[in-house]
Write a protein that binds this DNA or RNA. Structure first.
Lengths: 341, 341
DNA sequence: CACTTTTTGATTTACGTACATCAAATTTGG
DNA sequence: CCAAATTTGATGTACGTAAATCAAAAAGTG
């Protein structure tokens, strides 16, 4: 049987009340007594029964998810997964709220973070915009003792407790190798469609992609990045234009959203030529395109896993508990038409 | 606030004791009264607080994992993951035991299943050997009310509650497409190294692989399957021999274990030729081979996820609760040298 | 109707922890 | 050494459920 508070009290030769004072860092315990209790805790290997503690406290974990107000499939999916988590709230003792902030607006994000800090939630998950002010705001939250997890896009150099998202440099590198190998030594040009170079995850994907391309596939020449602002219409225009103007294009890497426009452009302009296309994020559109051969591979991050992982980590941090690292690593999914879920 | 048993008692106009009798299907409740209570439960949307219930019951979940006594990296890894779960036992209220049975021996497995049924555990996870007797034994367990999950290798057609493993047909198909695309239209022969065609997962991988190869890559010719019995020595011998005898081999698909032998053979015999190699299961050996270019891609199933998923599902089934399907889907990991964890 | 059997209610204890209160003991300051 | 302040103990209640006991009420039987 695992030891209880009673066992500690007995072992330390103190009363239950004193053990409670030590465990919950309440005042009114002499230093020597506190040490006696702590020794007993260590000797017996006591670990607080979180379920019982939460029951006694009628504890709920108020969590906040801060998302950019972007109108693309991926963000919609993320939103849906958070709402699914909200539906599980009672069973998981969470109280989750979604807060939307204007996209690509560090100041708005900072203001929101400041405002939320006052609520003293059990934890905050945010899709980070990469800016010094945001980093500083996050660091303040952490120093105030509020667990913070970055979601989808990280904030390196900040004190955030955890990042629930994929390694985007690795994603870019993987895309490059897949594209390079699929093209099997052919010579030609590669078009790159991004959302915006202002977003860290897109920058990182490009960085990884370009590095592997340069190093391992010198026969492939990268055209300058097309910024589609994750908008299907803009993406369509850019890709249609590029394909019309440049016959040398044999591959496309789409590292952002707005792939509906990409697919449409491909169907219009590329019926007569063989293009190898790698895109990010599995949506209804990219899935269909993968199945009909318009896209050759899709790299994906599972929004559901990211949300569930963020919640688990925030709860654990709020309780000062450890997490299972391997369980919280968000993997880069590679989908070919054969292994779609 | 979520409703409690007290609320139900009040709503149904009965006492707490009666509610308890209904909730825990104890006898001594008239049909009409039971219905009144069940109506109240539905109307109020009551869900039992599992944490509180487990606390009151001092419940632990006795779980049993049945594994084949095979001496390969994958099984060692699986074992290690179960032991890691055992280390978390107190926190998760589980009491997990590992039982080893001789590999490829349906009768031994059946005998073990019969013996374990008597213990009435909260759940059983097993690496299934695909045989009618095993299927029947599993069905008996399920009919006795014991939750059963197949692990790594499924038992289709049985009543098992869940399968914690990858879709092996999809894995084979994916391997075929990767190999075919990586070979970029070249003409040649493909060697296939399996463990044993008596194991369902290996059969399924081959089936998927052969289907896509025949349909989409007719320029590639499959040599007859080499059965390495998941043994590095045998694998080494078979591959070295095949490479020595056949100059036309341009690709290899290793769908089982024993890849240490494969890698050694490649380093000895294939320094002067370009081979594209796809293998299963990420181990220290395959990882090194992927990084140094001996292997081009590794397909993997995460043993840690499989074990944790099996435990979650067994606990949920024991409590009659639903699981989050997406969370329990074991994904096929595709590793290139760029996205290794 | 009396009687047995079944059903229901009322109440208590328990699980492991949190938290509050009040009294008693101990330490500290003057 | 006394008073004040601090530290500790003892005790009770609560969280939501399980499980047991015993009494009371209702239903069924002849």
């Amino acid at each position: 049987m695992r030891p209880t508070v009673h066992d500690i009290a007995a072992a330390a030769g103190v009363s239950l009340a004193t053990v409670d004072r030590v465990l919950n860092q309440r005042p009114g315990v002499r230093h020597v007594t506190r040490e006696k209790v702590e020794t007993a805790i260590r000797d017996l290997g006591y670990v607080r029964d979180v379920a019982a503690a939460n029951l006694a406290k009628s504890r709920v974990y108020p969590l906040i998810f801060i998302l950019p107000a972007s109108d693309n499939s991926f963000m919609h999916g993320l939103n849906a997964e958070i709402r699914a988590a909200i539906a599980r709230s009672t069973a998981e003792r969470t109280d989750i709220r979604i807060v939307e902030v204007p996209a690509f607006d560090p100041q708005a994000l900072v203001r929101e973070l400041e405002a939320l800090a006052a609520e003293k939630p059990s934890g905050i998950a945010l899709v980070a915009t990469d800016a010094p002010d945001v980093r500083a705001a996050v660091d303040r939250l952490v120093k105030d003792g509020i667990p913070v997890v970055t979601l989808v896009s990280d904030l390196t150099g900040s004190l955030r407790h955890h990042y629930a998202g994929v390694d985007n440099i690795a994603a870019g590198r993987t895309a490059a190798r897949l594209l390079g190998r699929f093209l099997g030594g052919a010579k030609g040009e590669i078009a790159i469609l991004a959302g915006s170079m202002l977003v860290r995850d897109h920058r990182e994907r490009l960085e990884g992609f370009a590095a592997v391309m340069a190093h391992e596939f010198p026969a492939l020449h990268l055209l300058s990045v097309l910024e589609g602002r994750d908008d299907p219409e803009v993406a369509h225009m850019l890709i249609a234009d590029a394909l019309g103007k440049n016959d040398g294009i044999i591959g496309i890497y789409s590292l952002g959203a707005g792939n509906r426009g990409l697919v449409r452009a491909l169907k219009e302009k590329a019926v007569d030529r063989t293009l190898t296309v790698i895109a990010h994020e599995l949506t209804a559109h990219t899935r269909a395109a993968l199945l009909d051969g318009t896209i050759d591979a899709i790299l994906n991050q599972d929004a559901g896993h990211e949300v569930r992982s963020a919640i688990r980590v925030l709860k654990a941090k709020a309780d000062g508990l450890a997490v299972i690292d391997a369980q919280e690593r968000i993997r880069l999914d590679i989908f070919l038409k054969d292994n779609l879920p």
